[in-house]
Nucleic acid binder design. Structure first.
Lengths: 346, 346
DNA sequence: GTGAAAGCGCTAACAG
DNA sequence: CTGTTAGCGCTTTCAC
């Protein structure tokens, strides 16, 4: 990794002071808007700044102030719309507070995530916002514990002493099952693409306890776990729908799973919600615009961003105390037109 | 914007040197792997580093070396899957070259984009990768020209002296029209969500010239421009399909437009490709997994990232010369099962 | 091969 | 109110 050729030195505060005919200290004072500056001095310095197009050197400021005004953000993958939206919402708030965001995709690679956390540390991030994929990896956990930077963890239940915002997947899923059960459904299938991480596991758990709460027996063959995150659900759902005892309702988890599921239903000649009900876990754009609109369980990402950034900001300000704080975000069920009474004839 | 409380000073190279019992200069030498270090010294320093958990202070390095090893990335919105994928691909390459990415969403707000470019400058980005929304705004153009940082512009034709990678939207669209014309289609509709930016405009242009090239008359009422980026295409397409002279083929531009279009076709009781053909401009995941799979015009984002990062890296290395370089990326047509011969009976 | 010292650009404490 | 100065942590001459 060869060092790039050094850039030419650009205009410094020294140049500004010189042109303005004042001392370096005075220039600094007007730049930082501290008191005790005469109007005349201020005027001269401001003109010099404008004339030179001066911009403070951030590296020097960071070195001096021990603060980079930047937040490190480690997500498993921005390509996942959920994380993209989350990033955007977080950026919005932190930007308003004067921070820029360093973004890195962890890609569920423990080693990579550790490396990224290390650079965050070495680069003196003022704070860190993370949702690592390797949620159980002891080395990743250690890396987080040793960060020594205000940290908030999003949607991961990790054993570190960090603030975190957790989603209440279990109650959310129970709500979904209750809704379906209320419509008379007794055979409800769950289609998931993977089960590696906490959110998935907890949702499956909620699906089970939802059945229990409703006094429903759960046929385990109705929980369809696709082998990989990317594995197409189409075939699996299609097969499911051919069964004599096919489910009367489908719960699809994840954007791709949902679109495959919708396809499979369509190809089977079934109509939503008359022949079959469906609810989506996660609320991609097309769920709302689908015909008919698909009922979804969603988490309000704006709320997550609000809580997450507030947690981080307050801790950075040193207002937080020693103990880690945990806040919970509720999944809300958005009822649309994709659920109807269970078909008796099945 | 109150300054955050200063962090405690952490372990510095000075501490390392002290513990190792060597001079600060020697410590630096082993850290930077320069020659002229005795094995004994190296050993001692390395032990001290390990014992202390030393990490170089990035701000100090940046200040000294005039290089931040950071790339500023300004996109209109990561929430757009295309940009998300692009970012991921770019990150991959630049990370391999030892850079981290600062990401900011411009949100098509000229003022905001200018501000972001300014911070990129002030923060001493080694390079900058941008796809601003405000492609015609003179102030944004000026901001880019005055950046004074190696810059590459992605998919925007801006009048600045920057390297850029351009997508050949026009030939791509002509290819699509040719394909459809070859199947006997003479009434082809184009559904677009907005036309604010260059890619959109150029695609419409390509659509027109494609017709010309095929000797086809173009009915302007078949170009459906939705008012806003988010405006649902469902109604528009549905209406279109009720017309007596309805099109025999639909070209849908953008992820949301495509899914609305598919919905509308489905709701009208039409079958793809028998009753109507459709091609997608842009290739979202669900296009390939749809039943039937939708033929798409796509641009290879990996290639874009490869070219873009290569352009940037070479310029940062100072290998690039004065002139701006432009490289073109071809749109490729992915033929799947959504296009068939035109229905005669319409 | 190693140590001492200068200086990157900036802020803040201090003296006037 | 203003100027001078130390020093943030690091790399890199320059002597030895």
């Amino acid at each position: 990794m060869p060092r790039p050729p050094q850039k030419p030195r650009s205009v410094s505060i020294r140049d500004v002071a010189e042109l303005a005919g004042v001392s370096l200290g005075s220039a600094s004072r007007v730049i930082n808007k501290v008191a005790n500056v005469s109007a005349a001095t201020r005027e001269k310095v401001e003109q010099a700044i404008a004339a030179l197009g001066y911009r403070p050197n951030h590296a020097a400021q960071s070195l001096r102030l021990r603060s980079t005004r930047t937040i490190g953000c480690l997500l498993s993958d921005v390509t996942n719309p959920l994380y993209a939206k989350l990033f955007r919402a977080l950026e919005e708030r932190l930007r308003a507070a004067g921070y820029m965001m360093l973004l890195a995709n962890g890609l569920n690679l423990a080693e990579r995530e550790i490396d990224i956390l290390g650079t965050f540390k070495s680069r003196g991030m003022d704070g860190v916002l993370i949702a690592p994929g390797s949620e159980r990896d002891p080395q990743v956990l250690a890396a987080i514990r040793e960060l020594g930077i205000p940290t908030v963890i999003l949607d991961r239940d990790m054993d570190t002493r960090s603030d975190c915002v957790l989603f209440d997947h279990v109650p959310g899923m129970k709500r979904v099952v209750a809704h379906l059960a209320g419509l008379g459904h007794r055979r409800i299938a769950l289609i998931v693409s993977q089960s590696a991480n906490r959110p998935m596991r907890r949702r499956i758990e909620g699906f089970r306890s939802g059945h229990k709460a409703q006094g429903l027996a759960l046929d385990d063959t109705l929980i369809v776990q696709l082998p990989h995150a990317m594995s197409p659900a189409y075939e699996a759902v299609h097969t499911l729908l051919q069964r004599a005892d096919r489910p009367t309702a489908l719960v699809a988890m994840g954007t791709n799973v949902l679109s495959d599921t919708l396809n499979a239903i369509n190809a089977s000649g079934l109509r939503i919600p008359h022949d079959i009900s469906v609810v989506s876990i996660g609320d991609p754009d097309f769920a709302a615009s689908h015909v008919p609109p698909i009922s979804s369980l969603r988490v309000d990402l704006d709320q997550v961003a609000e809580l997450g950034s507030e947690l981080l900001l307050s801790r950075m300000r040193g207002e937080a105390g020693d103990a880690a704080r945990t806040v919970h975000v509720t999944n809300t069920f958005v009822e649309r037109a994709s659920c109807g009474p269970a078909l008796r004839s099945v």
